[in-house]
Design a protein around this nucleic acid. Structure first.
Lengths: 150, 150
DNA sequence: TGTTAATAGTTGATTTTGTAACTAACAACA
DNA sequence: TGTTGTTAGTTACAAAATCAACTATTAACA
């Protein structure tokens, strides 16, 4: 017994997580793409700066786990479009501090509202317990320890 | 600091789901990539044929929600590498039945074992209740009805 | 100092994906 | 039949991700 033939692809966690992630990203993706022509990487950088304030590309990398080339290109595009400014550190000129412009903050606030509404909408289909368990377990699976990583 | 500033990016469901999906896919991805040089799309097609048996590209698309161009390319590569055979339907020559070769079934069985072990390992960190809630909620978020779809 | 190693970030080459247009085959029906 | 529409699957081209190599700068230390 325990034949392998009862394996259900849609219950394989990496697959299932991917399906849920893709499906749940669709509608939000549409908004930042349509309103600001942003990519996923750019939206993420925008939010990092919006939430945590001025920081370097390296710090964004540590928090987001995005590869540095992705971040570099996202920052370049956001800079071209005047969503952020770049300022070299005087002491260590390898470092560049990134900061949202007025326009960047406006986009951030707009998308923040959308994100909050959207998250609430996703949660709405779940019981409070389901919601709590889901987030807790996802944190675990994402390898986000309880330590903030600061 | 203000009202909306308590938004936590790592608690935004689409973001959190993506992080969890990526993190939990890493180790498995490494296996099918290293052992068989497969991409995610190819692994998925392989499993669909392994689990559900001979079927057309269209049916794979319906079950997996992958775009038909992805499937087309994955099938082409798996065919070149002799993991599957393609056979035209006599009655409707637009249709092509896909079927795993001996080699394809061997790869499938190998990866199936890896997947089962790996899924168990991911589950191991969770309580039974957490595991049950997680899968149920992910199904909901992924838009997979409760019916098996057969 | 001079040399080597490490770090922040960028760039280029290649691979993979996404979008749209395309081919070939079948269906529907005047 | 012929015309129009639909479907299964492929291909072409553009957009994006990946990986490795690269520049510029700082650190370590003999």
């Amino acid at each position: 017994m325990g034949e392998k033939d009862d394996f259900d692809l849609q219950n394989f966690l990496p697959y299932l997580l991917n399906q849920a992630a893709e499906e749940s990203s669709l509608a939000f993706q549409q908004v930042y793409k349509d309103r600001y022509g942003m990519l996923r990487t750019e939206w993420r950088v925008l939010f990092h700066l919006g939430i945590y304030g001025r920081m370097t590309a390296k710090e964004i990398g540590q928090r987001s786990k995005m590869h540095k080339t992705k971040i570099s290109r996202a920052v370049a595009r956001l800079g071209e479009r005047r969503f952020l400014t770049r300022q070299q550190d005087e002491r260590d000129r390898r470092l560049e501090y990134l900061e949202l412009t007025h326009q960047g903050r406006a986009a951030y606030r707009d998308l923040l509202g959308v994100a909050q509404t959207y998250d609430a909408k996703l949660s709405a289909g779940l019981s409070e317990e389901e919601d709590a368990v889901l987030r807790r377990v996802l944190h675990k699976l994402a390898g986000l320890g309880s330590d903030a990583g600061d």
